[in-house]
């Protein structure tokens, strides 16, 4: 069970995520919805620990995730696989190597540094690619692939990390409708087949409703909705997307919303 206990993150004078309280049971398909800049992306990066919170704690069972350092932190990251809007593959490396990067935390450092992957690791990576019908592209350079193919490579990379949860940050925002469906189906299959928790930032409310079994609505860095998709009434959705963030919260002054995500993507992890 993953617990976010008052987690906050500030970038300079701007608060991207503020006092988020969440409990996430394993095995669910959770959608995080909200306007761009609501802090969704920062929240996922906080869970993966790509960025550190400026306040609050993240707990996993009895482990304080926010206190993890070094080897333990890297193992946590491996178990909380990320999928990015821009895929974040290494364009000049071939597809198989990109998937094998998902094995980095599991192999000895000398093996990883020299790039001498064991046949077993290669077999795992190829199996993951075959799951998404792209094993034939294994030797191609990642940047020669289409967006949809690249995102499937990224999902394969996430899968070989043997994660407990997959954090998908707007996985389909750069894709056309057909590829969006392929990618979302792949995530759903992973969720059902391997019972890996999927936490997915989504722009589209329709997709969120049809894929997720729980929705979390965010505005101005705060959780403003948490419940089953059916409970999200049209009025609540309008509140979430239509009004100014500050208006929803009442007390909190309106934040420069569009900056939050941009701030998150340039911030370096410690």
């Amino acid at each position: 069970m993953l617990v976010l206990d008052g987690v906050s993150r500030r970038f300079g004078s701007m608060t991207a995520v503020s006092g988020v309280e969440l409990t996430i049971e394993p095995g669910g398909f959770i959608g995080i919805i909200g306007r761009s800049g609501a802090g969704k992306s920062t929240l996922l990066r906080l869970i993966n620990r790509l960025i550190d919170p400026t306040g609050g704690r993240i707990l996993h069972g009895t482990t304080d995730v926010t206190a993890l350092r070094g080897r333990a932190l890297r193992e946590w990251r491996a178990r909380s696989a990320m999928i990015f809007q821009q895929f974040n593959l290494v364009g000049r490396l071939d597809v198989l190597t990109n998937v094998l990067i998902g094995r980095l935390a599991a192999v000895p450092a000398w093996r990883a540094l020299s790039g001498l992957w064991s046949p077993a690791d290669k077999a795992i990576a190829l199996s993951a690619l075959e799951q998404f019908d792209i094993a034939a592209l294994a030797a191609q350079r990642a940047d020669s692939l289409s967006g949809g193919q690249q995102q499937r490579v990224a999902i394969a990379r996430a899968l070989v990390q043997q994660p407990d949860r997959i954090l998908a940050d707007e996985p389909i925002a750069s894709l056309d409708p057909r590829n969006s469906r392929i990618v979302m189906d792949a995530l759903l299959r992973i969720n059902r087949h391997f019972s890996i928790t999927v936490i997915c930032n989504l722009h589209s409310l329709d997709l969120a409703r049809s894929y997720c079994d729980r929705l979390i609505g965010m505005a101005a860095g705060r959780v403003v909705f948490d419940g089953a998709p059916a409970a999200l009434t049209d009025a609540a959705a309008r509140d979430l997307y239509g009004l100014e963030a500050g208006d929803v919260m009442g007390a909190e002054p309106a934040l420069p919303a569009a900056g939050a995500v941009a701030g998150a993507s340039v911030a370096a992890p410690a």
Binding site: R77, I101, L104
Partner: peptide, 11 residues
Amino acid sequence: KPIDGVLSTGG
């Protein structure tokens, strides 16, 4: 972005 990608896998 690729650096974030590698770090996020636990590298």
